[in-house]
Each structure stands twice: as C-alpha cells, then as structure tokens.
Design a protein around this nucleic acid. Structure first.
Length: 291
DNA sequence: TTCCAGGTAGCCG
DNA sequence: CGGCTACATGGA
C-alpha cells in the first residue's frame, strides 16, 4: 500500500489496496451518509468534511481532501491499516456459509465512525429500513447541522451536535420524520451534552462503555453492540438484528437468539464484528428468510 | 390493504 | 428474569 498526495487537485491516492470495494463498504449497512454518484463514486460527510471516493483497479482515490486530513482522519476512518486477509482466513475455517458470505462481501471494511453520530444513527435504526434511516439522518443534518459547503453543486451539512439536538423541541425533531424515536434523541442528546461521562467513555473499558450505552434512553443490546462495533472499535461485538437472526437460523440451523450468541462467541471469537457484517450484508442482499 | 423494517421501553406474570 | 405489545413512518 502506497500513499500519493496530489496537493494541487486536493486528492490523496492509495495504491495497491486490497480487500476494499466501494459498494461493499458503503452499502453493507454500517453507515448512512454516503451516496453513489453517476460515475459510481461515492460522496459523503464524516467528521465535518465532505469527500468523494472512487476506485480505479487497486487505487483508492479520495477527493476534496488534504494530506493532513488523510493521516488524521481518513486512514483510520476507512480502516486502511488492517490486514483483512488474516481475519477472513480465520473466519472461513470450517465454515462454508461464512466462506460464501465473505466471497460475496469481500471488499467490506469496518469504518471507524464518530461515536456521537453513531449513537443517534443507531437509535434511529430501530424498526426501520436503511433507506429511511438515511433520509432521517439527512433531514436532521440539513435542519440542525452546521453548513459545511457546496461540493459538485450540492450543499452539505454536518451531523448536528449533542448541544443542538438537546436544545430543540421534540416537535421540531419530529419534523425530520423520526417518529417516536424523537424523545430518545432529545433525552440522549441532553444526557451527553450535560455530562462529562460521555467523554470519559472514549477511554473507558469495554464493559463500562456497554453499561453507559445501555443506560441511554432508546438504546438496548442490539443498538449498543452496533455503536460499540462501528465507533468504539469493539470488534468482538456481534449485533443480532432481524437479518442476522434469520440467516443464522436458516443457514446454520440455529434455533434462537441465545444459541446464535453462543455459536458466534465460540466460532468467531475476537472477530465477531467482522463475521456479523459479512453475514448481515449477505443476508440483506439475498433477502435470506424474508418474504 | 397489510406487512415489514439493523428494536426498545413499559408492563405483566 | 422472560414474554408480550405499542410504537411513527414509508416502501413493497
């Protein structure tokens, strides 16, 4: 992997990158603020910046960025330093289903996303489909987020701060079509904005983080696991949603959530989060078990 | 029209 | 504890 800085064109090019596919990364259900352009590249907002990402063979091209942002944000955000081969090789041992799921989503990488944004995003995700979640988050950002700028003819807004969401009325949050989840958003934003506990969690143990998240209004075990996996680097976490539950019951012949948890702990160990994401993407795209 | 979506809080036994 | 249900909204 080789990094080239093209300062003049505000680009960073990463050469010789393996295990990275734009569709897999952005459509596997882990993130909600990335949209496909007509040229098959993706434009999105993260950490208050707008960038465009495209691929050319094994070259990853990040546009509208700088060398500084690449090393401070994007290298970690896109998880570029991790060896996915090692993870895949361990996961596929004695597991034909996983082998298929990994072949299908071979270019998935787990993004390292902002903790606060991930908390609200996955509170919103409950009992909802991904396109609607994306709409909700976009509406929240456009209504209450800071204006970032115009890129390729479109205006972009950052995800609103805890202070901002804590300060607005529930009725105003509801205008973003989040339904009954508005009260969860307001209260959780208030708790985070008005306590230093959240900041302490950024350096806390896994158990403390879990306890804290479960104490926030609107967060249960599944959402807490997603937040820990997608923004706190807790890669053992194995969130079980309707898709993972169905694919595990159908293709692994497991009976209930309890046996799924046991199976995952025993077989996936430290790589539960990666395993889960391959399975989720495979199940969702093939609509396993649904009808 | 009915059913379902990256579930959770509240309530009941 | 474990099981049940209401819940906002939009797409199939």
């Amino acid at each position: 992997m080789k990094v080239k800085i093209d300062e003049k064109n505000k680009r960073v090019i990463i050469d010789g990158l393996k295990d990275f596919n734009l569709v897999h990364v952005f459509e596997c259900g882990q993130c909600f603020r990335w949209n496909k352009e007509k040229d098959d590249s993706y434009t999105g907002v993260a950490y208050g910046k707008v960038i465009n990402v495209s691929m050319n063979h094994q070259q990853l091209i990040i546009e509208n960025t700088t060398e500084e942002d690449y090393y401070n944000i994007w290298e970690n955000y896109f998880d570029l330093k991790r060896d996915y081969d090692a993870i895949k090789n361990q996961l596929i041992q004695n597991d034909k289903v996983m082998k298929k799921a990994i072949e299908f989503g071979n270019g998935i990488r787990l993004l390292n996303q902002n903790e606060w944004e991930t908390i609200i995003s996955f509170i919103l995700s409950q009992n909802r489909s991904i396109p609607i979640i994306k709409q909700n988050i976009e509406a929240l950002s456009q209504s209450y987020g800071k204006y970032i700028g115009n890129y390729r003819g479109r205006d972009y807004f950052d995800f609103p701060s805890p202070e901002k969401l804590a300060s607005i009325d529930i009725e105003d949050i509801i205008t973003c079509k989040v339904g009954y989840r508005a009260k969860y958003i307001k209260k959780t934003a208030y708790q985070i904005a008005n306590s230093n506990q959240f900041n302490q969690m950024l350096h806390a143990s896994e158990e403390e983080i879990e306890k804290y998240l479960l104490g926030l209004y609107g967060i249960g075990p599944k959402v807490a696991n997603c937040i820990m996996l997608f923004s706190f680097n807790k890669y053992k976490r194995f969130p079980i949603d309707v898709w993972v539950e169905r694919v595990m019951m159908e293709l692994y012949d497991l009976e209930d959530k309890k046996s799924i948890i046991q199976y995952a702990q025993k077989n996936y160990k430290d790589y539960g989060g990666f395993a889960q994401q391959y399975l989720f993407y495979y199940a969702k795209e093939h609509k396993i078990g649904s009808k």
